[in-house]
Amino acid sequence: MSYDLTLRIWRGDASGGDFVDYTVPAEDGEVVLDAVHRVQANLAGDMAVRWNCKAGKCGSCSAEVNGRPRLMCLARLSTFPRDEAIVLTPLRTFPVVRDLVTDVSFNYRKAELVPAFEPTAEQPVAPFRMAQVDVERSQEFRKCIECWICQDVCHVIRDHEDNKPAFSGPRFFIRYAELDMHPNDARDRKRLVQEERGLGMCNITKCCTEVCPEGIKITDNGIIPMKERVVDVKYDPLVRFLSRRRRGA
């Protein structure tokens, strides 16, 4: 059944902006992105919004819907009260380009800093043979669609711009975890991720996990295991002693 939906969308650019209300017809079963497209097609042809697949797989249409970072294509209108405006703002952690589009290049700079996969001497060239249980472990992290919502919600950089140079963010911590758990990767990134990528800044408040549209257990399966691995090499004298003995044996 059709009804009139009001979207309160932030319009502006890096120099500033304000909220503008748009009322468009909406249907049961639609998502926020459908309504945004209707606004763009009928009321605000110059409104900038990034989108691609409309299926929660490309990670393009990230925005803050009523203050919560999420994909607009997965935000069902039926979950919002019909008599209240839905407020849309760009991702707060990244600089605004225009309207709902932000400059997320911070993330690509952090991606460049991740040391690449380095095969072990045991299997130096592809194809690598891996047992299914070992594949499945890191497969969870490979579901990441790089929508940057976890990066946006992380208070370490969301509320503290000055931490950006020293902090890679949850998306990349699971990338480090994925590589560190890979049975055929020889490179040790534990000290690097702690000392230069800011893993220690994470205080595991799990917001990244709460907002992940792919349902990746970022904190429990990625960040905390990585913190524990860092403890092994930096803070646990017993493990370090036993590791030295094992290597010496």
Partner: peptide, 12 residues
């Protein structure tokens, strides 16, 4: 989540 924290600096 996504609510501004009141602290001026943060070192985790």
């Amino acid at each position: 989540c996504a609510v501004a924290e009141p602290h001026g600096s943060y070192s985790g």
